[in-house]
Every structure is written in structure tokens, then in C-alpha cells.
Design a binder for these strands. Sequence first.
DNA 1: AACACTTGCAACCGCTCCAAT
DNA 2: AATTGGAGCGGTTGCAAGTGT
Length: 245
Amino acid sequence: MGRAPCCDKANVKRGPWSREEDAALKSYIEKNGTGGNWIALPQKAGLKRCGKSCRLRWLNYLRPDIKHGGFTEEEDNIICTLYDRLGSRWSVIASQLVGRTDNDVKNYWNTRLKKKKLLMARANSSSTPPPVLSPPIKTGAFGGAEFSFANVKPLQPSYGLLPQQHPQAPLPERSFIEQVVSPSEEASSSSLNSWCSYSNELFLSALGLGDAGALFLGGYGFGYQESDPIPGDMATLHQGLTFSS
DNA sequence: AACACTTGCAACCGCTCCAAT
DNA sequence: AATTGGAGCGGTTGCAAGTGT
């Protein structure tokens, strides 16, 4: 069964936004907020635009805290690292960069970083085997995705993202993990949804990117060196977290 | 100067998720 | 429990600007 379009395409303006439209949308939202309803917003703001289009324009361009262009070397590193870990979860990656949008990060990756990474890989290939250009995790909020923590490596601390790790942090109880994904249901869509309901925060945390990560992985996600072996018990932990489509 | 090609980015499309009914 | 519709996301496209010939 098809879905109704989000707006009457015949009667809405499309294509590039004019300055007037930008000003109208910005002033309306700054004065009234979005009201949690993008669909009704264009009419209220006096715009002949689809609500979806307004949302995109605001989130990716008009918001006052947005940075445009000028990615730093550190941001490059963060994006590359997170892409290796997460695949094309642009919104999650962007959430780790102040003032960057998912669209911005995605464009930057596709137009520049991907090439940069390929060139670096080629330059290194004379001495070492070429690294695989990211093993992209299939996208779609893990619906139908294959994901295994066994493939997740801890971040290098040098990227400045990570809080201090307690070196002797204990592993969490397995039962805690099973509250998230029980072995009996790890492949079911409901468990995927359960996992997803923990949202990006827990996902990142589990990768060592937040305070909850210390709780979730007992701190093993923090302060790791790439050369450090993964503790034996982590393999057990990984098994409890593997799910597939 | 004129044209062809490439690049970067804004915007759109189509899908999934999820809350409300 | 099933349906509906809005929000959010990643993939893709279109086009203006830049660069090369």
C-alpha cells in the first residue's frame, strides 16, 4: 500500500531557496519554534514549500549553530574513524562534531575524505597490504543489518573524543548485555528494535564514545591502543552482542 | 572566448521508525 | 492489533562554479 506524499507536489515550490524564503523560515522558527509539526509549518510561515523541505533547510543550513566548510584535520580523523566503526551512520558521526550536520559530513566524506583515504591507502600499499576502504555496515538503523561487536575496534585515544578510562574497569555482567539483546531473540526484528531504541547514545557509548560506554563495556572501550589485544573476556561479550538479519 | 569536463554541495527521494489513534 | 501520518535518515540527483583544453 503506497503512502500519500508529504505534500501536494504540484502546488509547492521546489529547488534552491531564495534569501526571502530563508529569512521567512528563520524568523518564523526563531519566533515560534517548529511546534513539533513541520507539515503545518510552511503555511504558518507563509511559505509555498513542503514541510519536509523546510525541515531540511532549517536543520542543514539555517540553524544558528551550523558550521559550513573548513573541516579540520581532527574532524577528518574523527569522521574516518567513526566511518570505519559505524559505516554510513552519518547522523551519529555528525553528532560527534560540533556544528556539523549529517548532510555536511556525508557530502564531505563522499567528495573528499573517501578520495583522501584511497590515496593514502595507495601510498601505503608499497610496504603493507592495502587497507580495506571501510567495511561498511549496511544502513537502515540496523534493520536487516549485520553487525557484530567482534568487528568493532576501540578508538584511539588521540582523537580527543574519549574520557579517561579506568584501566582495571571490570567487565559488565553478561545479564546486562542480555537485557539488550538476549541470545534467543538476537536475530529477531523486535530485538533489533530494542537495541535501536537505546538510540545512538548507547551505540556510541558501547563503542567507547560516551559515559554510558564505561557502564556498558566496563570501560574497555576507552583509552585503548590499536596494538592492545582485546581481552579474552571481550570475545564472550562480543558473542552476546552479535545479531544478524 | 568557448566548450567540455569535474567538483562540491544543496535539495530531493524513498524508505524505516514510531507515536497517536 | 492494525492503520495512519509525521519525523528522521541515508542515498542519490541536479546544477552552479571551477578548471582544463
